[in-house]
Design a protein around this nucleic acid. Sequence first.
DNA 1: CAGGATCCTACTCGATACTG
DNA 2: CAGTATCGAGTAGGATCCTG
Lengths: 105, 105
Amino acid sequence: MLTNKNWNCSMSRVLDVVGGKWRMNILWVINKHKRVRFNQLRREVEGITTISLTRGLDVLIENQLVEKYDFETMPLHTEYELTEKGKSLMPILKDLNQWGKEWLQ
Amino acid sequence: MLTNKNWNCSMSRVLDVVGGKWRMNILWVINKHKRVRFNQLRREVEGITTISLTRGLDVLIENQLVEKYDFETMPLHTEYELTEKGKSLMPILKDLNQWGKEWLQ
DNA sequence: CAGGATCCTACTCGATACTG
DNA sequence: CAGTATCGAGTAGGATCCTG
């Protein structure tokens, strides 16, 4: 998405990872549940489609903010959970959210 | 850009305002200088073009994170400065930047 | 000096339909 | 249940040239 090499702060990379339309919200909902399944996630991230959820999860997993657990059962069963890296971002997201409430209508 | 109405947290709106490719960086550099002129800003936000800088500033001014001061002299002279709203976001940006340094290569 | 005007590309996001 | 495949639209961002 962004990728700005010669930059003294690492904000671009942060936005590469969590700057998408849904990604912070996905993290938010996963965190609320600790562990959550795909369709439950889709229901709680309001307005998201399966494909956007899949793509958001892919980026978050690639960057190791989220871990996926597959159960080899039928019907399929998967669960998503925050990694330590993902959890470490939550306080900041909380602050950001709080800032939005205070300063944006 | 985003705009997600039925959402219990206001993160979408936050990203509407500061989620662009350059906007956080622009805030960052303005904050460093307190007050800064257009071309100096362009030099210090590495890689940005005039049009991207203009567009980024427009959004930030619209949302009152940045204030613009025009001097009616020739040659033209403008200065940009953070508002209280803009300043209030800086600690969070700092945290986000710090998080990026710790967790993203 | 501080932008505006134009034109263009690339990528994100979405709708719909289908599958192991 | 948990996705994939395909196609299409909208928009952020960029290149280049021009101006009060």
